[in-house]
Simulated assay, not measured.
Amino acid sequence: MELTLNRPARLNAFNEDLHQRLAATLDEAEEESCRAVLLTGAGRGFCAGQDLGDRVNAAGPLDLGTTIERYYNPLVRRLRALPKPVICAVNGVAAGAGANIALACDIVLAARSARFIQAFARIGLIPDSGGTFTLPRLVGDARARALMLLAEPVEAELAAQWGMIWKTVADEGLMDEARRLTAHLATQPTQGLARIKAALNASATNDLDSQITLERDLQREAGRTPDYREGVAAFMEKRSPRFTGRPA
Rank of each mutant, 00 (worst) to 15 (best):
A233Q: 13
L135G: 08
G173R: 13
R224I: 07
D227H: 11
A233R: 15
A194K: 01
I212L: 12
E157R: 00
A233Y: 10
E152P: 00
E155D: 05
L147K: 04
A198N: 05
L185V: 06
Q161K: 02
A170S: 10
R179M: 01
G231T: 06
D207A: 08
R145D: 12
L181I: 13
V139D: 08
Q219T: 13
Q219F: 11
R229I: 02
D171L: 03
L150N: 03
N206V: 05
T205D: 11
A142Q: 05
R143V: 12
T187K: 13
Q211V: 01
I196A: 13
G192F: 12
W166F: 07
A170L: 11
L147D: 12
A198R: 15
L214M: 12
T187Y: 10
P136C: 10
R180S: 14
L174N: 07
A142D: 14
A156F: 00
L181G: 15
R195G: 05
A183D: 09
R137T: 10
T182W: 08
L208K: 15
R145W: 03
S210I: 14
L158I: 05
E155V: 01
E155Q: 08
E157K: 03
A234E: 06
V232G: 01
A233M: 12
S210W: 10
H184D: 07
L149F: 12
R143N: 08
D209F: 09
A204S: 07
A144E: 05
L158Y: 03
A202M: 04
E230F: 08
E157P: 06
L200F: 05
M148D: 04
L200E: 02
R195A: 00
D176H: 04
M148K: 01
L193D: 09
Q211C: 05
W166N: 03
G163D: 01
R220G: 08
V169Y: 01
Q188L: 14
E230H: 01
W162R: 02
A202W: 00
R229H: 04
P153C: 00
E157Y: 00
A183M: 04
A194V: 02
Q161H: 02
A234K: 01
D209Y: 14
E230K: 00
K197Y: 06
A178E: 03
Q219V: 11
R195P: 02
Q219N: 13
D141S: 10
D227V: 09
A234N: 07
A156I: 02
G140P: 05
K167G: 06
L200V: 14
L135S: 06
L193C: 07
A178D: 03
E237S: 12
Q188H: 12
A194C: 00
G223F: 03
A144G: 05
R180H: 04
M236W: 10
R137H: 13
A194R: 04
A142N: 11
T205R: 02
